[in-house]
Structure formats: C-alpha cells, structure tokens
Amino acid sequence: MRIDCVVNGEPRRADDVWAGESLLHVLRERLGLPGAKNACEQGECGSCTVYLDGKPVCACLVPAGQARGREVVTVEGLGDGDLHPVQRAFIAAGAVQCGFCTPGLIVAVHDLLARTPSPAEEEIREALAGNLCRCTGYEKILTAVRLAAGREHES
C-alpha cells in the first residue's frame, strides 16, 4: 500500500508498504529516518517515541496505515538547524552513554517540558517512566531535564 504523510514538516510518500509494517519500520527502513529506535518493538521501552499529530506515541505500536494523512515529528525534526535545548542538555549533563534510548527520551522530555515547563522531580519520573535506559541509572537524565527546564525558563 501507499502511505502519504507529513514527516518533520515535509510531505513524504512510501510505496509497497506491507499491511503489517509499523510506522517505526516505515520511518526507519523506507523514509531514511532511523532516529526512532527499535529496542523492543512492543511498546515497552519508549525508544521509538515520535510525535503523531502532536502527541507522543510509540511508533512501533502504530500500524503504518494509521499514519496516512497525518503529521509525524521524529527526533530528527526537533532541532531547528541547531540543537534543541533538550538535546544540548542531554549532552552537557552526561545523560548520553550508548545513546540508544536517547532519541525516545529527547522526544519524551521535549513533550514534558512543552506541557510542564518546570516539572518537579516526581513529575519528571512519572513522565519518563515509559522510557527505559540501561546505561545511566537515570541520574544524569534527571539532571538533563532540570538543565533543559532551567534554560527554557531563562529564555
């Protein structure tokens, strides 16, 4: 089947998509956007988090056909030429180790701070409970969120 949708602000088309393919597969293997990651492909780890019509979803759980005519934003679409403050904060805080969870966390934190510009500790933890990280023990991720929140306040 054919899928037409808007990805990171641009109209994109994928042809010969199998009915069983996920949005994640189409993004990664057909549209050249491997930023969303394939860690579990069952909605448990959050590493494939993307925006679908402005709401964060696990792209692995979205059948590709459901993205037809809708707007997708991936981690590749967050920076505006330069790094987004959330991305900068992750680097500065040491929240990136292997980096496989990072794209999903960047989108999740981007969404959290859009809704709650200055989240309390417990709010951050609840918001990121669906994003697994195996390297950091999460401490530096919390630091990154605080850093990003502080910077966004200043600006």
Binding site: P34, G35, V75, G79, F90, V96, T102, P103
Partner: peptide
C-alpha cells in the same frame, strides 16, 4: 558522538 546521538543521526 554526543551531538549525533541526541539528533538521532
């Protein structure tokens, strides 16, 4: 590799 990793690249 930090910038590439946070960009998904």
């Amino acid at each position: 590799d930090g910038a590439l990793k946070v960009r998904g690249e």
